[in-house]
């Protein structure tokens, strides 16, 4: 029963992250939203693994955590090397 409440909290967190990704005034704001969205999805997959009783889903969470880190680092490198040329002042 408490696990379904947990699913609801995590889905609300996903919606708040999507709001920041859609609204964020600059590119780094959207990247912060995407990073948190990946972390929340890792938690959601772990909760689903507990609900369904399948251990194999934890491997999916491992791979997603790896790829989310690589994506955030790639975005940060892109922004630092001049990914926002309209902001040169």
């Amino acid at each position: 029963m408490i696990l379904w409440l947990t699913i609801g909290l995590l889905v609300a967190a996903v919606l708040l992250c999507l709001y920041r990704v859609a609204r964020g005034p600059s590119l780094p704001d959207r990247v912060v939203g995407l990073d948190l969205l990946a972390s929340v999805t890792v938690g959601l997959i772990a909760v689903y693994a507990v609900l369904s009783g399948e251990i194999i889903y934890i491997d999916v969470a491992t791979v997603l955590a790896l790829i989310a880190f690589l994506g955030t680092v790639a975005f940060a490198y892109f922004i630092e090397k001049g990914g926002m040329p309209w902001r040169k002042t």
């Binding site: 909290l9 995590l10 967190a13 708040l16 709001y19 948190l36 972390s39 938690g43 772990a46 909760v47």
Partner: peptide
């Protein structure tokens, strides 16, 4: 698991 989800919800609330 419930407290972990609560912390994640607080993080998303702060981001928003």
């Amino acid at each position: 698991i419930f407290f972990g989800a609560l912390f994640m919800f607080i993080a998303a609330l702060g981001v928003a």
